[in-house]
């Protein structure tokens, strides 16, 4: 079974960008151009190019080990510290190559927030968790910080639940609350892009649902890229979907189309659950 699949390597991983990905001629927020990623001798990403439009939600799907997380982490350079990491090609945000020498990684990450697979609040109070991003930027104005903390918590639909206990330890919150706290933490520094790496995989269905609703809300202000292994989730929340397999971009396009009428057999097989 498996060998049959691997034997059908796609001839090309280049996928043309359809105009319908960009219906209102909005500018491209994120762009990948001929990106290869290597970990020492292992090639994790093979010549991927793709464009993501502003204020949209894009889902990366694919079996584990397909490179979707690696690909996501290229957009805030979280792979940089991994031993043996090497990259060719360009990643552009607002038409600027973020791997250019003039780019400071810290500055980049202030503009590109990230939410992780497992909720990872700092072992501090709820308030300090959200304030952290501002504090490390050197913001001293406590009134401003307090405003941002409350605003971000509201935006992450967490505020009403914890209003009276901002001084409580973040680790005392439930898993779903912790994850929304992590989202609030990312929002506090006013990023324009939010990367989410399987943000609900460690949560129960109800908490997951809340996060999905939240993601939908956030789309108005942010460009969101989400990695998920949950096909229904991708279908529910995203505008566009990219299917990755063994480091190749197999198919990329409108989510509706991908899930109802995929062009490639491999995509069809994957979304119908025949492998992966």
């Amino acid at each position: 079974m498996d060998s049959e699949i691997t034997s059908q390597q796609p001839k090309t991983s280049q996928v043309e960008t359809k105009p319908k990905l960009n219906p209102n001629n909005r500018s491209f927020k994120l762009q990948a151009k001929n990106v290869d990623v290597f970990y020492d001798d292992f090639q994790a990403i093979k010549d991927i190019s793709l464009d993501i439009v502003e204020n949209s939600i894009t889902a990366f799907i694919g079996p584990s080990g397909c490179g979707k997380s690696t690909f996501l982490r290229l957009f805030n350079r979280m792979n940089d510290n991994i031993d043996g990491f090497q990259m060719n090609g360009e990643i552009r945000i607002d038409n600027k190559n973020i791997y250019d020498e003039s780019i400071k990684v810290e500055e980049l990450r202030k503009r590109v927030g990230m939410v992780f697979q497992k909720p990872n609040p700092f072992p501090k109070s709820i308030y300090e968790n959200v304030a952290y991003g501002l504090r490390i930027q050197g913001v001293k104005d406590e009134d401003y910080i307090e405003n941002r903390v409350i605003e971000s918590l509201k935006q992450a639909t967490l505020y009403s639940e914890i209003e009276d206990s901002l001084d409580k330890q973040a680790l005392a919150l439930s898993g779903g609350q912790q994850q929304r706290l992590c989202i609030a933490r990312a929002l506090a520094v006013k990023p324009s892009v939010i990367l989410m790496d399987e943000p609900t995989s460690a949560l129960d269905p109800i908490s997951s649902g809340k996060i999905e609703d939240l993601i939908h809300e956030l789309k108005k202000e942010f460009t969101i890229v989400i990695v998920t292994h949950n096909m229904q989730q991708a279908a529910r929340v995203s505008d566009n979907t990219a299917f990755l397999y063994m480091g190749n971009l197999v198919e990329y396009g409108d989510t509706q189309k991908i899930f109802t009428n995929p062009k490639k057999d491999r995509t069809q097989n994957y979304i119908t659950g025949r492998f992966g």
Partner: peptide, 27 residues
């Protein structure tokens, strides 16, 4: 100290030393 703490701090744009000073050392 779990590496997720380090990731979270880095992803918010903390420099290496900021992450060490504000997160790793207290933890």
């Amino acid at each position: 100290v779990p590496s997720s703490i380090r990731d979270a701090s880095n992803a918010l744009g903390a420099s290496k030393w900021q992450t060490i000073w504000h997160q790793i050392l207290p933890a």
